[in-house]
């Protein structure tokens, strides 16, 4: 963990960001019918022997969804877990398909943005490929 990540989490800032996009994002989160069609279109999911952790819907619900559910009251530990979900488990290729029109990449991108606001993002020059996440 880099020194930047030791600052306290700014819950107010996260809440501000969450509320700015509340309408669209909450709608996306509530529309998901768990049909799992997005999973079939995710190359990471397919490459990882259909590990459910790589399902696009799972990734959105467990990052941005969780941030809304907890209304931004999260600790660094949770943010660091989310970092793995939104950076390691997703490359934002934008190929995930949703039959009801939920745009998953913009949810993941928004989650990344919130994490970035708390200085949580990949450290690319740390030694192993695991550790930068």
């Amino acid at each position: 963990m880099s020194h930047q990540e030791l600052k306290p989490v700014d819950t107010k800032q996260i809440q501000g960001m969450l509320s700015r996009k509340k309408g669209k994002m909450k709608r996306f989160l509530s529309y998901c019918a768990h049909c799992s069609l997005c999973a079939e279109s995710c190359f990471l999911y397919m490459e990882h022997h259909k590990d459910p952790q790589y399902m696009p819907s799972y990734k959105a619900i467990n990052s941005l969804g969780k941030l809304y559910r907890k209304n931004g009251k999260v600790d660094r530990k949770l943010l660091t877990e989310m970092k793995g979900i939104v950076w390691r488990n997703c490359v934002l290729c934008g190929r995930c398909y949703c039959p009801i029109g939920i745009h998953i990449p913009s949810m993941i991108a928004f989650a990344r943005s919130i994490l970035r606001s708390q200085d949580v993002y990949p450290q690319l020059d740390e030694v192993s490929s695991e550790s930068w996440l």
Binding site: L92, H103, A109, S113, R116
Partner: peptide, 13 residues
Amino acid sequence: TIERQCNADFFSE
């Protein structure tokens, strides 16, 4: 920082 500057999807913020 935005996720990518080569794709319009990431500019909205």
